[in-house]
Simulated scan of single mutants.
Amino acid sequence: MSISQHHTASGRPLRVAPAWVGAARPATGADDGLLPVREAVWIWSVRRYARVSLWALPMAAVLYGWSTLGAQPGPLALRLSAGWFSLVAMIALTGLLAGSRVRRPAIAGLLVGLAGVVLLLPTAALPPDTAPAGTALSADAVQTVAFVGALVTGAGWLLLGWAVFRSRLVNPADGILLMLAAVSVGAGAYAVQPLPTVGALLMLAAGMGLAWTGNRLIPPA
């Protein structure tokens, strides 16, 4: 017996809920709930990556909060590690929301956040009031670039938090917490204590909630 692209290996029809797939409807307009196996496998892989990688968000929050307390191995190393985990979390969160009605603000948040990180990285390792050699930037200009980078990164998290709040896929309270944490991220080095630590705690709460509920969006195998 041949196996259709709309059937599993056992021959049973493959039915996928459109709420978590976000796939296009058939051209005929029929809504029979069937989806080609090759598309379902690809969607499953993306969602599996997204739900596992969401745990990078609480990791980033822990490292960022740790750096605000002046712990070792040093604020620079901790913040660079937190930035890497936050990038992974941004991509995972966007992948999780790609099939929902808030895909556009989620993608916009990812792109804005990436732009902010690009601005932050060149200035992350520079000491205060120091200009990089071989460039026309002054020390004040470097501080301005760092502030703009933090502001743009915070705007990216704000858009992602808004997308979470409006998605109806996860707890909307996690989106509110993420938007509040974005204020601390956007303040950057200009934030005074205890705002950075409070922001890290808010991001940790949002990340734990998203990572926990995100695992329930895909039916068990």
Rank of each mutant, 00 (worst) to 15 (best):
M59F: 12
V117Q: 14
A205V: 03
P219D: 06
A89S: 14
L121Q: 08
P13E: 04
I3G: 02
F85R: 00
R25I: 13
W162Q: 01
M1R: 05
Q143I: 00
P172K: 02
L210V: 05
R47S: 06
L177W: 08
S45Y: 06
V152F: 07
G116R: 04
A124V: 07
E39F: 10
A92D: 07
W55Y: 08
L80E: 12
G83A: 06
G134L: 03
A115I: 10
T144I: 01
R15T: 14
G65A: 05
V88I: 11
V117I: 11
G109T: 09
L177H: 02
V88L: 05
A133V: 15
L121N: 02
F85G: 04
A27H: 10
L96K: 03
A139W: 13
A61R: 02
T130G: 02
G99D: 13
F85I: 00
A92M: 07
H7I: 00
M1W: 04
T213D: 14
L63G: 03
I218L: 14
L14I: 10
L180K: 00
G154H: 07
A27F: 09
V198D: 07
T8G: 14
G113A: 12
T153L: 15
S45P: 01
P220S: 07
W84S: 01
L34S: 08
L54P: 02
R48Y: 03
R168N: 15
S53D: 15
V52G: 00
G156F: 10
P105W: 01
M208W: 10
L78A: 14
A191F: 11
Y49P: 01
T8F: 10
M90N: 08
D32M: 09
L57A: 15
I43Y: 11
G83V: 06
I107C: 01
G29F: 11
P105V: 03
R79Y: 13
G116S: 12
L97N: 09
P58V: 06
M179W: 07
D140Q: 13
V198C: 06
A205L: 10
A187G: 04
A173S: 02
L93Y: 07
R15E: 11
W66R: 11
G149L: 06
V102Q: 04
T153W: 14
L201N: 07
V16N: 00
W66E: 05
T68P: 00
I107S: 03
L137Y: 14
